[in-house]
């Protein structure tokens, strides 16, 4: 819009870009998706730059835009967008596993976006319940339940049990098991 506004925006985003990419990476668990997410988010930041720059905590405001863009885009299927790149597919984020974190990473990747976002905001951004609720645009009760469900799902997966949703047999399996019990 204005030279001054553009300059302030460009300076802010340039400085914050590494942090935004890190947060997006944790939310998406995929670098390419994360960079797409950041690109979309900083467009929204540009559109709302006057509010963002005037917010009490601009960083928190911009983080909230990123998180909400993540949740919104996941709902609207943005991952189907065409992407042209000359880069090779990335290698796994964790290449060594001294602390047994690869299993945890895999489990986190399987969490629904809302639960994953709650975990990232609570345990990476160190936000309290109220701050997490504000960032997600939901109630504190929802944050508590999302966090609890996420932790339960992770514990279940790490213990070797598939969570209840994963234990649901397929229709074909149900059909066969039903037939088996029926015959029995």
């Amino acid at each position: 819009m204005t030279s001054q506004r553009d300059a302030e925006y460009a300076e802010y985003v340039s400085v914050r870009l590494p942090a935004l990419r890190r947060l997006a990476l944790l939310l998406c668990q995929d670098r390419h998706r994360a960079d797409d997410l950041v690109q979309q988010a900083i467009i929204r930041v540009y559109v709302h730059w006057v509010k963002a720059s005037g917010a009490d905590n601009t960083d928190a405001y911009v983080n909230a835009i990123l998180v909400r863009e993540f949740l919104h885009e996941r709902r609207s299927g943005w991952t189907r967008r065409v992407r042209v790149t000359d880069q090779l597919p990335e290698s796994p984020i964790l290449t060594a596993d001294p602390d047994g974190l690869i299993d945890l990473q895999a489990a986190v990747t399987k969490l629904p976006p809302g639960q994953r976002a709650a975990l990232v905001l609570r345990y990476y951004c160190d936000l309290n319940i109220d701050q997490t609720a504000a960032a997600l645009g939901c109630t504190t009760g929802t944050v508590k339940s999302q966090t609890a469900k996420a932790l339960a799902a992770l514990r279940s997966r790490l213990a070797g049990d598939a969570p209840s949703a994963d234990r649901q047999p397929s229709a074909r399996a149900r059909h066969h098991s039903g037939e088996a019990s029926h015959h029995a």
Binding site: A10, L17, D35, R44, V45, Y46, V120, L154
Partner: peptide
Amino acid sequence: DLRALFERQAASEPPPAPVSVPAAQRIG
């Protein structure tokens, strides 16, 4: 463990940023 995982992922060396601030301004 979650904190450790997130910290480690965040600290991993990122590739050059394909994110474009001027493009965001233009689209914005």
